[in-house]
Design a protein around this nucleic acid. Sequence first.
DNA 1: CCGCATTTGTTCGTATGTATT
DNA 2: TAATACATACGAACAAATGCG
Lengths: 245, 245
Amino acid sequence: MPKRIGQWHDVEAALRADILSGRLEPGARLSTEADLCARFGVGRHSLRRAVATLVAAGALRVQQGAGTFVADHAVLNYQIGARTRFTHNLLSQGLAPSGDLVSAETLIPPAHVAEALGITPTTQVHAFVAVGRANGDPVNLTCSWHLASLFPSMIDQRRAGETVSQVYTQAGHGDYRRRETTITARSALPVEMRHLNLPDARPVLVTAKVDTTRDGLPIGYSQGIWAADRVRFTVENTTMTGELK
Amino acid sequence: MPKRIGQWHDVEAALRADILSGRLEPGARLSTEADLCARFGVGRHSLRRAVATLVAAGALRVQQGAGTFVADHAVLNYQIGARTRFTHNLLSQGLAPSGDLVSAETLIPPAHVAEALGITPTTQVHAFVAVGRANGDPVNLTCSWHLASLFPSMIDQRRAGETVSQVYTQAGHGDYRRRETTITARSALPVEMRHLNLPDARPVLVTAKVDTTRDGLPIGYSQGIWAADRVRFTVENTTMTGELK
DNA sequence: CCGCATTTGTTCGTATGTATT
DNA sequence: TAATACATACGAACAAATGCG
């Protein structure tokens, strides 16, 4: 026996059903708040809470002054854990990759970065923040940290448009490896909302990985924040037969 | 230029800062709403919106009648894409795995399942819903669909506690393979909130995979919904040397 | 075990600001 | 510029859950 308290739950369910069933098509505009309030017989508060929930869920998109619309998204399918790269991933789906370097500086890393890199908290690193785009729309925000001692001119190189891989190679670490990638999800932080152009605290996927030399020495750590409704990760399940138990 | 208007943003930022800085320790109880309203000089509306945002972000936990608390979580590190299993994954971290079978029935699959399995929309499948737990706390909700024709007595077998792998093996498909796994994130649906014991529409990670025979014929499709703040996926980055560009 | 005070949840009304058309 | 539509904010009242005496 479901414990349904709250009219806004009912309104949310009704709107969600309309969207899923196709009665409201992707991109369609909903009636105004006032109309919907009248239709459902609830106050503006209840209606707005239902809409807010669906916006957070990525089912609706609201634009002040214009109206409320059913979301329509293009989802990027991103291959992970292999030798594919951002550029290659997008091109293979007919999307135009681009990116902006938001910031580049040399500093003392935050604690969790120092830990991941296995360095003392006072060792200097280069820190970069960049936005990756598909067809001009931002899809991810990358924060990366690299040992400053190994890549003296990395700041200038990256400002000149060189990729991390290119810098690694020129410094004699072309055969670097990527340790395992971790994936988590959470709600977007205010900074992330700005860079990813998110209208609200929507879910984001967070990827993190450590680059090491062939000997396993960490040389860089990077973290990607992805708008959850704009990407789907694919992990190739290599190996494996049965192996139950 | 940031266009930040709204007091509730300021309240959220202040609370977030208190949490991150450690002034509010994990598990600690905040002052009451009334007190916080007075302290920040805002109405209850603004305060509650700030709190709601932090709850959605997983930073706070609210309990009606009791108070608002700083979240303290145990995060499960889940190895993905290898031969590891739910049980093994938990045991290796000292967590006790358990699970409940929520439902088991034979039916016509939803469209996206039929598509994934490469079957006509009228082919019957067994559908299961189960909750996976770590130390009794729910961490994921698994929905799986399996070709009914291949596993006639699967419903009874699973009700008797047998695993999917065990059923596969007994039907002569012990050497099944897992096609690639996809990972996405979104907000939890009401059903998921109930089973995962989520107090709100928090982010969830969604994993999906197709089991096939050695010949590549699909025999089952399963989807896992994970409470985002209770799990971190780890993908082993096999292979790979440089291979830049 | 009951009852009561405390604390959060839901809902309404109302007013004003800001973006879009 | 004016009308429309969503955003923010305050206040108030009652419901529901919790915890304590």
